[in-house]
Design a protein around this nucleic acid. Sequence first.
DNA 1: GGTAGCACTTTATAGACAGCATGTC
DNA 2: CTATAAAGTGCTACC
Length: 740
Amino acid sequence: MNAAGLDVLLKYFPRSFVETLSKKLGINQLYPTQVEAIKSGVLDGRDIVLSAPTASGKTLVAELAMLKTLIAGGKALYMAPLRALASEKFEEFSSFFGVFGYRTAISTGDFDSDDPWLEKYDVIVTTNEKADSLLRHKARWFDKITLLVVDEIHLIGSDKRGATLEVFLTRTKLMPRRPQLLGLSATIGNLEELAEWLQAKPVRVDWRPVPLKEGVYYNGEIFYSDGSSTTLDDHGTPLYDLAYDTLENEGQILVFSPTRRSAVSDAKKLSAITVKFLKPQEFRVIREHVSRLKSVYTDKVTLELLELLSKGVAFHHAGLGLEARSAVEKLFREHLIKAVIATPTLAAGVNLPARRVVITDYRRFNVELGYYEKIPVMEYKQMAGRAGRPRYDKEGEAVLIARSLQELEFLLNEYINARPEKLQSQLASEPVLRSHILSIIATSENVRSYSTLGRFLTSTFYLHQNKDYFFVIERARSILEKLVSSGFLEVEGEKLLPTQLGVRVAELYIDPETATQGLNFFKSREKASTLAYLYMISATPDAQTVHVRRGDEEWLEEKLKVMKEELGFEPPEDDIEYEFFLQVFKTALLLEDWINEVPEDVIVERYDVGPGDIYSLTLTAQWIAFALSEIAKLSGYDVHAVNLGVLSKRIEHGVKEELLELVSLKGIGRVRARNLFNFGYKSLIDLAVAKEEELSRVPGIGKMLAKSIKKQLSSREEGEVDEEQPELGEPGPLDFYLSS
DNA sequence: GGTAGCACTTTATAGACAGCATGTC
DNA sequence: CTATAAAGTGCTACC
């Protein structure tokens, strides 16, 4: 390695820092990506949108830029689209900046660094939504941010979540002292347009640390983009051929499959091959992981996975629980399992490179629109970019599978040699716009009239891209009317003022429509059954629902007969509405089972979901329950507020009310709490009185846990002093000024 | 009468962010 | 709206 490779950094950093980079962090040379970015001025404080392939060193660019800003006494905010990515970066940054004596914090739905908020940290890692939420809550440290790093900034074009990022960026753009911006992007068709909107410099780098070959497999041959080709041995099916060839050369293969079902079945098929390449010592290590996972999961989905793991292969999709997923990732990274067959979870998710990536189908069924569509080139490129493990593989290879000569041609032209499409702003869709319009008015003092809102909208990417100003203004006007009639805003002449309710809705981060539905529910009844609450929650636009299969209708209708009373209303007549009704009803039943302590395995079977689905379903329901409880409180519906508060806790832990006290202990979940309860420990007092040895006789409670319980209880008795919260409510520094 | 094997028919379809206050299966 | 693989069902041939 060439130590002089770091010379360019001496212009920006003290020599000791550069030496530390080399000695402690093993960074001796800069990648072309980093050189380009520095040439373009990231370290001189310039705003930049950097588009470069996966693993081409974008993270180090961000780290250097952040380090630069920290040395100057500033603070950096790093935003990522997924919680998993945020926590991955948090780990990385903690050690990187730790070496230089700077502190890193993370704030997502999962974790929150508590201490007097995030003020004293130098680097803060969040998800996009969390960053937006912090803005809404007027976090005071926000004006201390001197560098904003937005990872995967191309997410601005995603239909569901793109608008959040767009509004966030528009807001920061309009701040009086805007922080430096570093956007990190995959390859996109209109980088220049995006950068121009952000008033940043577009920087495009195509260099990859591991060269990537892209090709199409047809009739026993891989045809590469450069016109060359290789022939593979025949093992029955294209996927077998590709897998065999990869494993034979001691590589690993990552397969993208369109559905969960096909991912599982492809994994099963490939197990016949992978098992042949599994060495005995590898098998032993895998078995340890498998037996550990067996103690966590006993549902059929995970059991199927565990069986496959022992054969050196795995499937990966969002139905799997968190631990199962990360076990698959870990085993694959350690080269123990040879093949992973994944749904698009992994396309934009955690970094899991493999020598060869196979995309079995360029089409995917669109559940919402109800038809098959071809996946965007950008998504293909993201998947293909996973090919090639730095340091392990000389080159990576991405392969699409063609079924006919025509398709071969089509895939070469439309994917491999195609340019990724242009990013399109997704701001104009109504449900998205209504949330953000309320949020903008409710949480910033400077957009409080039709004209300032109009000016805000003018600064968005949407209007930068589409010149139809009047269309947006019209749509905004109709949304404003609805927000006013729902009681979130008030009009005083030209002025638009948020109500207390409106502010709270924006802070709680729920769709105004969710709040409206909640309020209608509260208004129409003084009390409600648990099932009725669960139904109401699951029917909101923020909720997730489960699918109703053909065979479900029958038993759902049986259930309905018995529970009509409890539900408190008649199901709709209309066919489409009825279909939605059944979906919501099924979801409500699942949640009810969950809070009645029905075992996870049973839920998995009964509702045809995976443990991961249960997790995300309950997480969402719990959040909505909490938010609506707050809305009820604010609107004077005290009974509903209390009921929903309790319900939210029950959903969080999956327990009956009687266990809520026990479950507040660290290390005690629904299962252990029930065991304790059945052994007569029904409250914290009971536990405080009990002896450690007695507690450890309860199934699921070992010596360690018994000790931890006692320790927790004794510290509670002493009454720990709560940490002081910074006062809220002052106008935040994030308010921007739309001076005309 | 029972069943293996095959052809035809039916069925279902990816993912995941947010509050708050501290640590799930 | 532009599909397809897996699971389910039913039929036939054969013992």
